[in-house]
């Protein structure tokens, strides 16, 4: 089953074409890696899909319906969640309150019986290392990324975008993240993850999408794309 499909998606910022004519498909159960050099347009691509920065042209189909230019809040309700490259959740809120927002507003009302309980579960699920009462502005980047992930999961998504979740992690933390991503995937959530760390990509992704200068240069099984000369060339410059 196709979960997400973009057709000729393009995003222009004035004269700059950040995403150029990208078509791709993501299937149910995929853990797809979105790779490409810095400034390739990866974040812009997921922003265009998730509604934060709507596309200039092209279309998006999610779960079989046309969702082009829907607002982020609408996309969230439809089952799409995302984390942010620069995790900056709500600085003055405690960890539990941060997750509560997505629990309460990201789910149809009444669907979650006990929001506090549900939010706690999410924090446990991402193995959040701090107390739930800690205020977000006191967390470091790594902890914030975990919190942001818990927030994203709290709305019970069917599709999850993660933007450089693993950047800046130590070797041990990388293993934790790997395990958590596998857990998410096991829950039946399809994943599109922007990532630079090859070790992680090779370990968890079944498919890859590579873009360079906003244009798709490869899409397919992880091994194939990773060995594609165009892709290695894009990375080596």
């Amino acid at each position: 089953m196709i979960v997400l499909e973009t057709s000729n998606l393009t995003k222009k910022f004035g004269g700059l074409t950040a995403v150029n004519d990208v078509s791709m498909t993501l299937n149910q159960g995929d853990v797809m890696g979105l790779i490409g050099p810095n400034g390739a347009g990866k974040t812009t691509f997921i922003n265009a899909i998730s509604g934060l920065n709507p596309p200039t042209s092209g279309s998006v189909k999610m779960f079989g319906d046309d969702t082009t230019r829907l607002t982020p809040e609408k996309m969230c309700r439809l089952g799409l969640s995302r984390t942010f490259q620069i995790p900056s959740p709500f600085p003055k809120m405690t960890a539990i309150e941060t997750v509560m927002t997505a629990t309460i507003f990201g789910n149809e009302s009444g669907k979650v019986k006990d929001p506090v309980d549900h939010s706690r579960e999410m924090l446990d699920f991402v193995e959040f290392p701090m107390a739930e009462t800690v205020v977000a502005e006191q967390l470091n980047t790594v902890q914030l990324k975990r919190l942001d992930l818990a927030r994203a999961l709290a709305s019970n998504p069917r599709l999850l975008f993660m933007d450089e979740l693993a950047s800046g992690l130590s070797e041990g933390e990388l293993n934790d993240i790997m395990r958590i991503i596998n857990k998410i995937s096991k829950k039946g959530i399809s994943i599109l993850m922007i990532e630079h760390i090859m070790q992680l990509i090779m370990a968890v992704c079944n498919r890859l999408l590579c873009i360079q200068f906003g244009t798709k240069i490869a899409e397919g099984l992880t091994q194939e794309v990773a060995n594609d000369p165009k892709v290695t060339k894009a990375y080596l410059g």
Binding site: S50, G51, L52, T71, P72, E73, C76, R77, S81, R82, F84, S88, P89, F90, P91, K92, M93, E97, T101, A102, F105, G106, N107, D148, R151, A152, A154, S155
Partner: peptide, 15 residues
């Protein structure tokens, strides 16, 4: 508080 502290994250959370 959510929309006051981070509009993008608030919207991504369904608000």
């Amino acid at each position: 508080q959510a929309i006051g502290q981070n509009m993008d994250a608030a919207r991504a959370s369904g608000i």
